[in-house]
Design a protein around this nucleic acid. Structure first.
Lengths: 138, 138
DNA sequence: ATCCCTGCAAACTGTTTGCAAGGCC
DNA sequence: GGCCTTGCAAACAGTTTGCAGGGAT
């Protein structure tokens, strides 16, 4: 199961050169079953741990931005000093546990369809994001 | 119509001393019919313009944070390098016009009730925020 | 008089940029 | 070789903090 060649293909097909760094980041992000929520800072630390070799922070930023532009990652709307990304690029929503600061995917069947009644002339809806903040019962 | 005394009372009743700076900020924020969406940077610039006298940026930050803590302002969940606040503290949602970066209130009747079906044991829902991104028709 | 608040500058954090060196095609 | 990418450091933007002086009670 050589995912490397899959990732090389994926990168190439979107016009990105398959460099060592990008392949490592691909492995870390896309070789997993569950979706992954992260900040670039997180990612950088994890990369260092996993591969014992540092990838420049600027490179991680570059790569994440390219991946986002290519549609491999989504940015999550949340109030935070940091920017969060999501490996799940489908239309879906999130729980944010304000106690632990953890993000949890809410898939479509967990939320009844949101309908927006108001319309703005000349504008169309691009996306609808729902953020459900949760906290401990007490 | 001396709103000043209203604001003085408001501040005092929440344990905040009614200083010149806070009163100016109150006037700017709460003496208006429509809700106001802003960043601290915006606010600081507007204050300078309107009152011809600069309020220290740190003071504006302090004040906005106190007001938020007292429930006079809400923070809006949006992906941005800056933090947005809203003078409308009721439960409501937003359009974000990605073309102009403008925020527009969506009041409750503009959105069909959002129901969250999924439950997380030991957690309760604190808030539900919907962000509807819109863009130009073309 | 006390305690709170303001203003300034310095510090901090996350992110971006410029540019030289290196790697992919 | 040519062009893209990396890495580093410096630059940046927004925000926070420490502290001395000023103001409210």
């Amino acid at each position: 199961m050589d995912n490397n060649s899959i990732f090389i293909e994926k990168l190439r097909s979107s016009g990105l050169r398959p460099t060592k760094q990008r392949l490592k980041i691909c492995k870390l992000l896309f070789q997993r079953k569950e979706t992954f929520h992260f900040t670039v800072g997180d990612l950088s630390k994890i990369l260092k741990h996993k591969f014992k070799e540092k990838i420049s922070l600027a490179t991680v930023y570059n790569t994440i931005h390219s991946f986002k532009k290519k549609g491999y990652l989504k940015e999550i709307a949340i109030n935070s000093d940091k920017t969060y990304f999501d490996t799940n690029t489908s239309d879906h929503h999130h729980f944010l546990d304000v106690t632990t600061n953890e993000l949890i995917d809410l898939d479509d069947k967990d939320v009844k369809k949101v309908s927006i009644i108001k319309k703005i002339p000349g504008k169309k809806i691009k996306s609808i994001e729902v953020l459900v903040k949760i906290e401990n019962n007490n």
